[in-house]
Each structure stands twice: as structure tokens, then as C-alpha cells.
Design a protein around this nucleic acid. Structure first.
Lengths: 164, 164
DNA sequence: CTGAATCCCTTCCGATACTG
DNA sequence: CAGTATCGGAAGGGATTCAG
């Protein structure tokens, strides 16, 4: 896992193929892909969105992010810390207290994450409508196909009866 | 379609608790959460990013999205189509040809997705640096702890030897 | 070419129990 | 309080096969 952090962003973008240069590198081993998988993660998204306004303790996050297990929250926070997006502060006290907050880098990401969340909020109704329409079409199509199949079967049986 | 694609729909956003209204609804059964999980999906992100510039055929997408299996691409496209983000056009021809393109709704999402990708590209070096630093600290901590454990063991053995 | 369906393995993840 | 360790079930996802 040698870092090899060359200052240019193109270290994985060896254009050996006739690859469309205007398009970003989608290849699997590209670092962008790996980072994208990490920050586009379900829990990461929520944690970053929540940490914007103030630092939060582990348990506060656990309560705020409905449905997250202790295991997943701990793992998510460790990954975010490793990526330099979240900082972890341990206060020497009894009971122990650990605060998580966005780093400056994490704060810049928050803007983008927030845009994604906002988009979802603004368009959730359109999506719900589209889903309903799709499901209705699907049901209709299946029924039509079933009728067609039944019709063909009937014809086939008639022909067989005539041959007998 | 035996797979569990029918979780609860719609029953969400019942504000029964003293929930922070300035914060968005992070509850698990909220529709925003479900949509977010879908569009923040690994393959969905890539497909939407790729479909921005022009419509693409199934095989073109399969080639462009490195590492995606036929199964996953087909499933991803179905989901995006169901959500009204991607439109599917079948050309009656031999061999068959199916084009996928962003709907107007999908195009609005693309802007946001693109911002996320851009952020990742711009900050990938910072993240790589942070990871390297984290890993180095972790290794150092582990070694320090190992030394400490060894020291204690030595002391314990010494005491036991004295008692004998 | 564009899928859907099946098999099968791997990874994810929640529940539980246990430490500092 | 803030985690780690372990385990078993569930889901993800690849390879293959078959159909239109």
C-alpha cells in the first residue's frame, strides 16, 4: 500500500486506450472509485451530514443516526477518521468522553453531501411518482402477457383437438 | 423477482418525537433515506455520471463501467429506470438495440453527482496523505503497546522468580 | 445484443458478549 | 461511555446458462 501520492491527479489515468479524456476515469483500480465508494456509503453520508453543525459524542451520533448498529457506527467513524474527514478527540475523564467533529477537509465535503441530501428531499415526490408509475406499468404488462400466453395455449389445445 | 425489493413505502416522517427540525429526517423508514441509499449506490453513481453526455447502449455502459457484472448493471439500470432517472429506449432491430439516457430528473441529479465526483478528484491526494498518516500512527501505536506488554511480562516473571 | 434466471460463494452486518 | 471480538444469518454479487 505504498502511498505514492504524486501531486498530479493523473497517476491512475494512464491513457493507454482510446479512452475518452473528457470523461473521468471509471476504472476499478482508480483511487477515485475507492474514495467514492467510501464516502458515498450509507452511514458515512449520514454522519458527515450530522456533524456539520457541531461536534457530537459517540452515543449522540448513535441516537441521531436511526438504525445504525454500534458496530457500523464505530467502523464508519474509524474510516472517516482515517480518511482525514473526521477528527476524534478523547477527553480524559470518567466516564470516558469522545467527541467527533468534521475536519476542514470534511467540512468541504459536507457542502457537497448536503447538496445531495437537498436534491433528494426536493425530488422525493417525483421519484415516488415515477416508481408508482413503473410498478403500475409492470403489473399491467405482466397481466397482458399472461392473457396472451393463455390465448396461445387455448389455440394450441384447439389445434391438437382437431388433429385427434 | 423473488428478491426483497419491497420494503415499506411511504410510511415515514411521522413527527412524533421532539426531533430537531433544523436537521433533516435521518430516520430509517424515511423515504429520503431509502432514495439516498439507492442513488448513493456504487454503480448508480457511475452510471449517472456516464450518461450525462450522451445516451449509451447496454454494452457501451458495460465497457465503460469497469468491473460491473452484467447482472449488476442490468439491475442498476432497472432501478434507475424505476426511479425515473433513466429512460430506456428499445429499437426494434436485429440485433436488438437498447439506449439508456438521463431523464430531465436524472439530469438535475447529475449536477450533484458530478460535484461529488469533482470533490473526490480534487481531494484524493489529501485523503491518501491522511490515510498514510493514520496507518503510520496505528503501526507505531501497536508497536509501542507490544513493547509495553513485553515489559510487564518481564516484570511479572521476575516477581514470580523471586517468590520461588 | 439485451437481458432474465439459477447457482453458489463471499462479504456485510446486526446481535450479543466482553473490556477499559 | 466507548468501544472490540465473535458468530450466524442475510444480502451482495460473479459466473454461467438460457431466452427473445
Amino acid at each position: 500500500m505504498e502511498e505514492g501520492t504524486s501531486p498530479s491527479l493523473g497517476n491512475c489515468c494512464d491513457t493507454d486506450q482510446d479512452y475518452d479524456v473528457r470523461q473521468w476515469d471509471t476504472r476499478e483500480d482508480c483511487e477515485v472509485r475507492q474514495i467514492l465508494d467510501r464516502i458515498a456509503d450509507k452511514w458515512s453520508l449520514l454522519v458527515i451530514a450530522l456533524l456539520d453543525r457541531r461536534s457530537l459524542r459517540f452515543t449522540e451520533l448513535r441516537r441521531a443516526v436511526d438504525g445504525v448498529s454500534q458496530r457500523m457506527l464505530a467502523r464508519t467513524l474509524r474510516q472517516l477518521e482515517r480518511d482525514g474527514l473526521v477528527s476524534r478527540t478523547v477527553h480524559a475523564a470518567v466516564p470516558p468522553r469522545v467527541d467527533y467533529e468534521l475536519t476542514p477537509l470534511g467540512a468541504t465535503l459536507h457542502t457537497t453531501i448536503r447538496a445531495l441530501v437537498d436534491w433528494t428531499e426536493q425530488h422525493q415526490n417525483e421519484i415516488a411518482t415515477a416508481r408508482a408509475a413503473y410498478d403500475r406499468r409492470e403489473v399491467a404488462d405482466r397481466e397482458a402477457q399472461d392473457r396472451e400466453t393463455a390465448r396461445r395455449d387455448a389455440v394450441a389445445r384447439e389445434i391438437l383437438a382437431g388433429l385427434r
